[in-house]
Design a protein around this nucleic acid. Structure first.
Lengths: 155, 155
DNA sequence: AATGAAAGCTCTTAGAC
DNA sequence: GTCTAAGAGCTTTCATT
């Protein structure tokens, strides 16, 4: 079950950090462009990339998609407290509803904290109805995002 | 302030969706590889990419970095309720602490919901001390992530 | 561990359907 | 809106420092 029991903290030097920072900004930058940014030759840069991937520091590369451009007008964060005996079922329900774009299982009274993207407030009702059969929910609508997802210090 | 008042919902066809799905998996895939996946020529694929970027559907490309590989062993979600008159200051404090990797301002009693990556439980204490001068907090430690960040339906 | 030069491949532009 | 073809640019390999 625990596929990554004790991942060693990789030691990164300044160049690695610059490389990661550049990739955070634009993961499709060419190796030669990355090389220019970090001040190395392309082959060296390429090898550092490979090493960071092999170490697991780089887990992959992905696209930032703006849900608003796809018609998602509303974002909500839902705390979910399953009714007795419903924990696994609730987890399955959330997993199967694709509008839930993220869900963490946490300590404390609320078992799950999940994030939903929605086309409308009516859709929020529809989706939560599927959950409230098996759990108490507490919903907060996102008004703004003071800190959009970013990287922690690469210390 | 509202730089994107009413982003039109872009109409995507099957090929666009396949392209986005491929980029979600590997944003560094070459255009020719993407072309193979979606069944178009490289130039057509390249133009679709440009169009999706221009429409704002694609907001950029980024690297997935595994915080555990950097020694972050703990993740927490913190609900933050600023004390009277401290709202903006609390927002600034959170913004300035780089371990807060995400923060949303939400409706309801708790004004902010934020996510932190930590090296240790001691560090959680240190960081929250900076916030509790100006706000009440409620912290939930992440035990697992049933739904890792994913895309909503590209409908 | 990084560099530089060369071979091979990829991307993009241009022009046609 | 998509394709083929060709030039430009990039990535990688390998010998060298």
């Amino acid at each position: 079950m625990n596929k990554r029991p004790n991942p060693p903290a990789a030691a990164l030097d300044e160049i690695d950090r610059a490389l990661l920072a550049a990739l955070v900004e634009d993961a499709r930058a060419s190796v030669s462009e990355l090389a220019r940014i970090v001040g190395l030759s392309a082959p060296s840069t390429s090898e550092r990339l490979r090493r960071l991937e092999a170490q697991g520091v780089i887990g992959g590369y992905t696209v930032r998609i703006d849900p608003r451009a796809l018609g998602y007008t509303l974002q909500a964060i839902v705390r979910v407290k399953p009714l007795p005996g419903q924990l696994h079922l609730v987890e399955d329900v959330i997993r199967r509803i694709p509008e839930f774009i993220e869900c963490d299982k946490v300590t404390g009274d609320d078992c799950f904290i999940a994030r939903i993207w929605l086309h409308s407030i009516e859709q929020l009702d529809e989706i939560l109805n599927k959950v409230t059969e098996r759990a108490e929910t507490s919903t907060a609508i996102v008004k703004s995002t003071p800190v959009p997802r970013r990287l922690p210090p690469l210390g």
